[in-house]
Design a protein around this nucleic acid. Sequence first.
DNA 1: CATGAATGAGCGTTCATTCAT
DNA 2: TATGAATGAACGCTCATTCAT
Lengths: 206, 206, 206, 206
Amino acid sequence: MQVKPGGHTFTGAARRAQIVAATIDTIAELGYNQTSFARIAERAGLSSTRLISYHFAGKDELMAAVLAEVLDQLGRHMAEQVSRAGDARGRLRAYITGLVGFTAAHRDRMRALMEIFLHPQGDLSSYGPEDDRDALGHLEAILREGQERGEFRAFDPFVMASVIQRSMDALPLLLRTRPELDLEAYARELVTTFDLATRARPGDVA
Amino acid sequence: MQVKPGGHTFTGAARRAQIVAATIDTIAELGYNQTSFARIAERAGLSSTRLISYHFAGKDELMAAVLAEVLDQLGRHMAEQVSRAGDARGRLRAYITGLVGFTAAHRDRMRALMEIFLHPQGDLSSYGPEDDRDALGHLEAILREGQERGEFRAFDPFVMASVIQRSMDALPLLLRTRPELDLEAYARELVTTFDLATRARPGDVA
Amino acid sequence: MQVKPGGHTFTGAARRAQIVAATIDTIAELGYNQTSFARIAERAGLSSTRLISYHFAGKDELMAAVLAEVLDQLGRHMAEQVSRAGDARGRLRAYITGLVGFTAAHRDRMRALMEIFLHPQGDLSSYGPEDDRDALGHLEAILREGQERGEFRAFDPFVMASVIQRSMDALPLLLRTRPELDLEAYARELVTTFDLATRARPGDVA
Amino acid sequence: MQVKPGGHTFTGAARRAQIVAATIDTIAELGYNQTSFARIAERAGLSSTRLISYHFAGKDELMAAVLAEVLDQLGRHMAEQVSRAGDARGRLRAYITGLVGFTAAHRDRMRALMEIFLHPQGDLSSYGPEDDRDALGHLEAILREGQERGEFRAFDPFVMASVIQRSMDALPLLLRTRPELDLEAYARELVTTFDLATRARPGDVA
DNA sequence: CATGAATGAGCGTTCATTCAT
DNA sequence: TATGAATGAACGCTCATTCAT
């Protein structure tokens, strides 16, 4: 990098967005490991990889930018979905359908997200305001609240949150082998499954 | 063209085993991406990477050998665990406790397994006789059988199998961040969770 | 072809001075090799390196400007110091104390000077009116005069000038490892040393 | 590097020596900064820079190897020269003529030595058993001994050692601009100069 | 007078693999 | 069965400089 490239100008921001988009596409298609500056530049139609180095301090910053963009979009989507629901059970349902729905609508972005999370090269957590732990945190909060309100049975909220989250984290991978997978049906199955797995039953001790 | 390296002689097999073991350790510690021939040779105490190239046709074959070894061991362990149980519910319980137990006992091997599955470079399915699909297949078979016998409720066996499998696939990753995680408790939570999620209830229609 | 950047306007001259100052600081801290346009711009608070390229034809011209500034200041200081002394012996003493004194007062500038002299990339002599040879020339002139006046013994003035000059050239380097070095004491030692080394003794043949 | 290239075999050692020699020549001609792996490979007639990376862990190790070779040779030469002399005055004389003589006989090597010392990139001191400080140390020891024996006058041994050492360190640089310089005469001048500068005189207080 | 954007060349390093015994 | 030597390609990154306003 030379000094500090502007991300604050219009054309600069446009270039950055273009490079981030090309990065997402490349990761989605080839995976993180095969995603080099050369391949990104190729896809973005840039004359040289130098342009990427010019706009981003390094590979870590580029990946952090991808992360930030996708997580921001995802976060807004999830907030909107979950906030509507009234009780914990409803919010859990909304969380599941919201996340599966986002994955269905943005396969490439979610695939890129997962790939980056699985490759902890630099210190990505320093960039994104919201990350995997946060995701687990949100879910755990919903589960705890449901337990406190007597909607959910007694279970370890961390374990349950992990199970639920992983069942959806794996989707981008699953979609690779089964692109035709019916995600709406998948979401319905998950909702039923985790409703049964979590809900309190008559006679349960709070 | 070189002479085909025999895996059929004693010293040859020993060397292969040594290299496979070093590969597992390296992947478990550094992850798939940082696992190069150089680092494996280093750990195995070999004077050059040439010995690896000599015994394995390439990186893909080496990884396939790792896969074969771990999956074979895991397969025997699981077969032993699951076959004991009488009904489907018991076999599901045995599957979960068996797999979590194996993961607890062989963290490095399971971590390597997961890393290799997550990095589909070559065509691994051509090597290993048993792979991830098989794992899902076994689980799916248990679930189907339980449904047929009226033990389990109606659900999509593929989706349920995926959810259950992923909840344990993620363990090696989880153990990286939380090495002190109580795996027995984790297994108990999973057993309860998926028992509730799968079992038929009075009044259910078969 | 671009318009020639004027050093003749007020703001232009100010910018040039600012850049030269930042260059000196950068060289003093990081050394010549690590001193790139990017790092200079960073230190000077410039938004891009373009401003440097704009005001200076290239790296060589920038370094020549640094050289010119420091050598000019040093030259005036030395002229003032040396001219006061009456005989050659006194002028030699003044030269030594003057140069060591200047080094003590302007460590960064002298460090930059030395770094640039040690990295003869372009043809620096074409820029600066006064350079290392001139320095040696001044010293040599003092020594020759002292010999002619019978104050100094017979020796090769060039060699002696080199020895004396190098004993002080090395100071910026020495100060890196020993920042607490007592430069006044150092100067006194040099004065005594070279007084003994140069002066004529009774019975010497002129 | 891959694992560990052999420096212990005959051909390996020969290659290493060849590369070290090419490195010395390149530094001597172009200076440290212009000395890249590409230029060294070019001069050594290697097919690619990869061969250098194969035999040396990195640039630092290569430079350390150059340093080790030259310092070893120089050290043996100096030890031989200085040990012959009886008193401190003689040893000082031997030190000067020995070092200047070595520089005259091995201009390229000494130029390379100086260039590397002036570019403290990695931690070179960890490699060479003997370095610049040692050189100063040897000289200082001679001076101190001479003072204790009453051969030398009172002066700061560190300062005097620095002055003497620098007067010879500068030779490779001086030879660049004046290749025809008479080094024997130069040595004689130095011997006289520092003899006068250091020796005790009748009436001096020990 | 100023500057954001862009660029081609070069850097040291690492990769899996092949050559030649 | 084993191994030291060698290799071309690719990697992320930095360089001084030029383009176009």
